[in-house]
């Protein structure tokens, strides 16, 4: 299937909008609704004027049928948005802690349920836009720190990350190319005598079916160690060097 080039490297805002619709939001139903079992989420029993937490896509569908009223998230209150804006102004290097999908959710609530907001929708929309502009300015400042290894900006929203992703990825790749060009590494050459099994049969063997292809016999691998475990590297290094010293002996020390 052919996909346009810009969709290969990043999401369209409409795709993020779709993903944000799977977040939950509180609604006030106007009619009784029976609980429904769905794959992934269960919809609770709905009573009129009792708050229920449902996925946004459900809330949108009910709202379109005039069967519910949105309860906008706390941060979409005018006072809270003003507080967030003040925080953004006061901290030139930190971003305020907002919902990951804050722009999309604001967009959804403002388009489908502007009448359920506690303040006029224009005010909310302008505040959201102001916050977004301040954050954008800060992310531009943050770009000054870019290098080939990392770029860290905490608490950016999905849409904000999405907007800078193609640019940053492409830029950092080019910087990595420069660093790689400058560093010429010795090519790794495997001598044939390392693996005598290969000489006997011409068919190359893939994977680690037999133990001889492993650099370290699996009996000596620490099976209790899992990916993500914290390892005290200094102790590990000492153990390794110990093992190196004892290589001529048959069978290394217990790991």
């Amino acid at each position: 299937m052919s996909v346009p080039a810009e969709q290969l490297e990043t999401f369209l805002p409409s795709e993020l909008h779709f993903m944000a619709e799977n977040e939950t939001i509180e609604i006030l139903p106007r009619r009784v609704g029976n609980p429904i079992k769905l794959a992934g989420t269960d919809l609770p029993l709905m009573h009129p004027l009792r708050k229920n937490r449902v996925p946004i896509w459900m809330a949108i569908a009910l709202k379109k049928q005039q069967r519910c009223q949105f309860v906008p998230p706390d941060w979409m209150e005018e006072s809270n948005l003003r507080r967030i804006l003040a925080f953004e102004h006061a901290n030139p290097t930190a971003f305020s802690n907002v919902d990951f999908h804050w722009l999309e959710i604001a967009q959804i609530v403002l388009t489908t349920a502007p009448d359920d907001l506690t303040s006029p929708p224009q005010v909310i929309r302008n505040l959201v836009r102001d916050i977004r502009e301040v954050r954008e300015q800060k992310s531009r400042q943050g770009m000054k720190e870019v290098n080939e290894n990392m770029l860290q900006m905490d608490r950016l929203g999905a849409l904000e990350i999405n907007e800078m992703r193609p640019f940053v990825v492409e830029g950092m790749e080019e910087m990595i190319k420069i660093r790689k060009a400058g560093k010429k590494e010795e090519p790794i050459i495997y001598s044939e005598s390392d693996n005598p099994e290969d000489d006997e049969d011409d068919e190359p063997t893939y994977g680690h079916d037999d133990e001889s292809s492993l650099a370290v016999p699996s009996s000596q691998l620490d099976s209790s160690l899992r990916y993500g475990d914290r390892v005290d590297t200094s102790e590990r290094r000492r153990e390794l060097s110990q093992w190196d010293d004892n290589v001529p002996q048959q069978g290394g020390p217990e790991w």
């Binding site: 810009e6 990043t10 369209l12 805002p13 409409s14 909008h17 722009l103 967009q107 403002l110 388009t111 502007p114 929708p121 224009q122 929309r125 836009r129 849409l159 999405n162 907007e163 800078m164 992703r165 193609p166 640019f167 492409e170 830029g171």
Partner: peptide
């Protein structure tokens, strides 16, 4: 130039999305 074009394209996509509210 390629980088600039990519940045502009994603900025445009974002602006078009945010312009879906009409009031």
């Amino acid at each position: 130039k390629m980088l600039y074009k990519k940045g502009c394209a994603s900025r445009r996509a974002y602006k078009e999305y945010m312009a879906t509210i009409k009031y």
